[in-house]
Design a protein around this nucleic acid. Sequence first.
DNA 1: ACTGAAAGAGCAATACA
DNA 2: TGTATTGCTCTTTCAGT
Lengths: 152, 152
Amino acid sequence: MDAMDWALLAELQADARLSFSELSRRVHLSAPAVAERVRRLEETGVITGYHARVDPALAGRPVSAVIRMNCYGPRCILRDGAVTAWPEILEVDRVTGDTCCILRVATASMAAFEELIDRLAPHGQPSSTMVLSTPVPWRPLSPAPGAEAKGR
Amino acid sequence: MDAMDWALLAELQADARLSFSELSRRVHLSAPAVAERVRRLEETGVITGYHARVDPALAGRPVSAVIRMNCYGPRCILRDGAVTAWPEILEVDRVTGDTCCILRVATASMAAFEELIDRLAPHGQPSSTMVLSTPVPWRPLSPAPGAEAKGR
DNA sequence: ACTGAAAGAGCAATACA
DNA sequence: TGTATTGCTCTTTCAGT
């Protein structure tokens, strides 16, 4: 992970659809070298994928929320793949503290959200917080502050 | 937003680097028609961008956390663009409840995390929860359950 | 609103230095 | 890793349905 890798990551995080040629122009490296570096970043798992980002509200899911789940031991939703596969659930983090995991969800309506809570309740006590807006929806990962570029 | 738009969104959320030609093969539509639809999805804001996703741990940020901020009115971090621009802060949601916003952060070490908390403290009371793992890092948005495909 | 063809640009992938 | 070449795919446009 040297400075060149970070330059490539910056470009691809900003626009995943850039061609290798266009990337090579922006980072001042030859196209084959760029292709090889990106391939390595993918293979080592640094780049986990390339995804279009969709606005939930404009896609018919105006109700967003963060739900902290206090699961009942054996019925923990993390032990039930069917639950974490529900389409309303956009993200699941296992965390420390008095709660077992945090869910990020989006539904088409308050009624649908209420119904989701009802479905979650058998697995644990849900504590919901509605998302009013998202001032920073996402930020590209950059080199950790203080970290020096290192060779591999 | 008809079924064809959703098919395109599904493909692009799974792989943002697909060409229009490849997309046209997968959804059984001509390439120009695909290009036009994707252009509309971008222009109407349904697609907000195309981004490479990077594994924070493999990119030198093994410490992830969710921080609920109880801001001190005028010093609320939402009123200070400089704060929300800190590279450790990956996402900010404004929420309902006894807290003003929720931050998603990633740092290179516990020491760096502690230092981040110190920097946040003047703006409000941070309540931190460490992320142990992320069973569902992300899920593509699909048509809201129960919603019928509708013309525009 | 979509198809199909045709044009040209631009790209990925070699091979070799 | 860079340069150069080769073959090809992709984007875009346009006329037609």
